[in-house]
């Protein structure tokens, strides 16, 4: 660009040119955003159209089958549900505790630094590596088998950084005067945390948990790596029985499949009839993750508006 314009006309020309570039770039930005949104729309509509014929009530109540038209996702969604229970049961207490420790208790020393560096690093480790960890540790070293509990634990480790980071951010937003007020009336650290910090940071923690769970629902690679079966035509044993002791935890040790694995299995078959099944399963999967993410975004938005300390 040359700025040696002599006459006012030349200067006006330069300004007009620069302003045109501004407009052009705005158009470019809108187009770039449009490409992103259009891709998403194409993805969703393509799957919805391909899978529409299969999205019938029977699809949810039938087991996978060799015949595409009779195959359903019963074992897949039950498996996903059970794995998510284990994941939440492990990741939420661990993640929230870790977040509380790092924000409220941790002294400034090298141990804390090591923990923080580890959490940042773990957030960047590819999910399939967690699968290898689970395969070596949970499946072979601990003998937990290729089961619901192994999958749940693996995904819990995977989303732990998400829960920890969300917890820390929520706690950090609580002003110091809340803590000072609690200490001033003689509360101990834990009493302050239990009665003030945790309740006030709950919505923020919840947002993080939902985002973490939506990530866990869609994860395929680590679960394939631990050796989940792709064809399961039975359900894990029911958690509630008619006989004493009424509660059974056998389902934890049961082989299983989950929604994304079922979808992967159908997608990788050459027969197009199965692709329709994959599309239907994918539609449900996208719908679930969208709903969870949407809920989290809405929660965060409401939070930002309603907080008045």
């Amino acid at each position: 660009m040359s700025y040696v314009a002599q006459t006012p006309e030349q200067i006006r020309g330069l300004i007009a040119k620069a302003k045109r570039r501004d407009v052009l770039f705005v158009a470019l930005g809108v187009i770039a955003l449009g490409i992103g949104f259009a891709t998403f729309l194409a993805l969703f509509l393509d799957m919805l159209l391909d899978g529409w014929g299969r999205l019938r009530p029977e699809f949810f109540t039938q087991f996978p089958s060799r015949r595409a038209a009779q195959a359903g996702i019963l074992s897949a969604w039950v498996g996903t549900f059970l794995v998510m229970i284990v994941t939440a049961a492990v990741a939420v207490p661990l993640g929230v505790s870790a977040g509380i420790y790092l924000e409220e208790y941790a002294p400034k020393n090298w141990v804390t630094d090591v923990i923080e560096i580890n959490i940042t690093n773990l957030a960047g480790v590819p999910s399939i590596v967690y699968g290898l960890l689970a395969l070596g540790l949970f499946v072979y070293a601990f003998g937990l088998g290729q089961s619901v509990q192994t999958a749940g634990l693996t995904l819990a480790l995977l989303i732990l950084p998400v829960v920890i980071v969300a917890t820390r951010e929520a706690i950090r937003a609580i002003p110091a005067m809340i803590r000072e007020g609690a200490y001033a009336v003689g509360a101990t650290r834990w009493q302050t945390v239990k009665d003030h910090i945790i309740p006030y940071s709950m919505p923020g923690i919840l947002t993080g948990v939902i985002i973490g769970m939506s990530r866990a629902i869609g994860e395929t690679a680590p679960i394939i790596t631990i050796g989940a079966l792709t064809f399961i035509a039975f359900l894990p044993p029911a958690p509630v029985g008619a006989e004493f002791p009424f509660l059974s935890f056998e389902w934890l040790k049961a082989p299983f499949t989950v929604m994304p694995i079922q979808m992967f299995n159908w997608t990788s078959r050459p027969d197009p009839a199965f692709h329709a099944n994959a599309a239907a399963a994918g539609t449900i999967l996208v719908f679930m993750t969208l709903a969870m993410n949407g809920l989290a975004i809405w929660l965060r938005y409401r939070l930002r508006k309603n907080i008045k300390w």
Binding site: G36, L43, M47, E219, P260, T267, T289, L290, M292, N293
Partner: peptide
């Protein structure tokens, strides 16, 4: 508006993107 929608885009399970890549 744009940022949350972009976030949704990154929340789509990768297996769904795989299906999209192979069949669309």
């Amino acid at each position: 508006i744009a940022k949350p929608v972009l976030e949704l885009l990154s929340g789509v399970p990768t297996i769904v993107y795989g299906y999209f890549a192979l069949l669309f």
